[in-house]
Write a protein that binds this DNA or RNA. Structure first.
Lengths: 150, 150
DNA sequence: TATTGTTATACTCTATAACTATA
DNA sequence: TATAGTTATAGAGTATAACAATA
């Protein structure tokens, strides 16, 4: 071991893309592990989260927000719907669209899953100071939702 | 349009994992696009970067540093080697290991690729202030190389 | 016995294109 | 014509297990 960090790839250490990718890999790995007891993965959890607070987003809105292709959302909603966590409802005004709503069962699993995720994140970022965490909470949204049209 | 950001998933907006994942997706997409002219992808570029400055890391060291499975490194090095960008050399002391070294051709393509990546990143993060960029450069390594053993 | 690289396999994720039904 | 959802498919990334050569 002895810290691979300093030894290799000096060129990569000031590469925000690389750092983001590595941080995300660690985070997703821990997240998926934490969500396993709930039968969810980071991906399906995030879909559930878009409707868990009582909103009824269309699949298109979910796709845009999560930055997924609409066809991926189909599969994710299929999965969540087959387990009774969400429901599709044909749009009233626009009958092409489907509003996704969270069932009580979905809401329940979401609440537990969210706690498990938060706990995993706490463990993972235990060595960050409150200030650092605050700074990240302010900075990451800038990267995740850039004004520059991707 | 009209900013999907505020509308959906309030639960996700304070979720560092989600923000990381979304930022990474944007960054990787832009990175892969920028690297296309060089016949590289973010993944193969990062392997090249570990030896481009003249170091000769083993595949195992590369796997640890990039957080890849050793079997993935095999495929990536195969690809880079087949195009003459890197070379495998059997380790002198430990004949099990293979030192990966960068060829002049590899070095050349790396330099161009690195510039293209930096340029893409500049465009993507154009709306960040120098202070914000500095803060990210300090914070992201903390997430990418946590002291907590993953 | 343990480790490096390798092969193989299966699964997840990503990216496209095309189709349907509505608008 | 254009858009929401869907289906299908191929390619890239991830995760495991097992094996040969070497330590």
């Amino acid at each position: 071991m002895s810290s691979e960090r300093d030894d290799l790839g000096a060129a990569l250490m000031d590469d925000l893309s690389f750092l983001l990718a590595r941080a995300t890999a660690i985070s997703m790995s821990a997240g998926n592990r934490a969500l396993t007891p709930f039968g969810l993965r980071v991906r399906s959890y995030s879909v559930l989260a878009t409707c868990a607070d009582g909103q009824r987003p269309t699949q298109r809105a979910i796709a845009d927000y999560l930055r997924l292709d609409p066809s991926q959302v189909v599969a994710l909603v299929d999965d969540l719907e087959s387990r009774g966590f969400v429901q599709r409802t044909v749009g009233a005004r626009d009958r092409r669209s489907k509003a996704i709503s969270c069932t009580p069962a979905g809401r329940e699993v979401f609440v537990g899953a969210r706690e498990a995720l938060k706990e995993a994140e706490r463990t993972l970022h235990a060595d960050l100071s409150p200030d650092e965490r605050l700074a990240l909470s302010a900075l990451l949204p800038r990267l995740a939702f850039p004004t520059t049209s991707e």
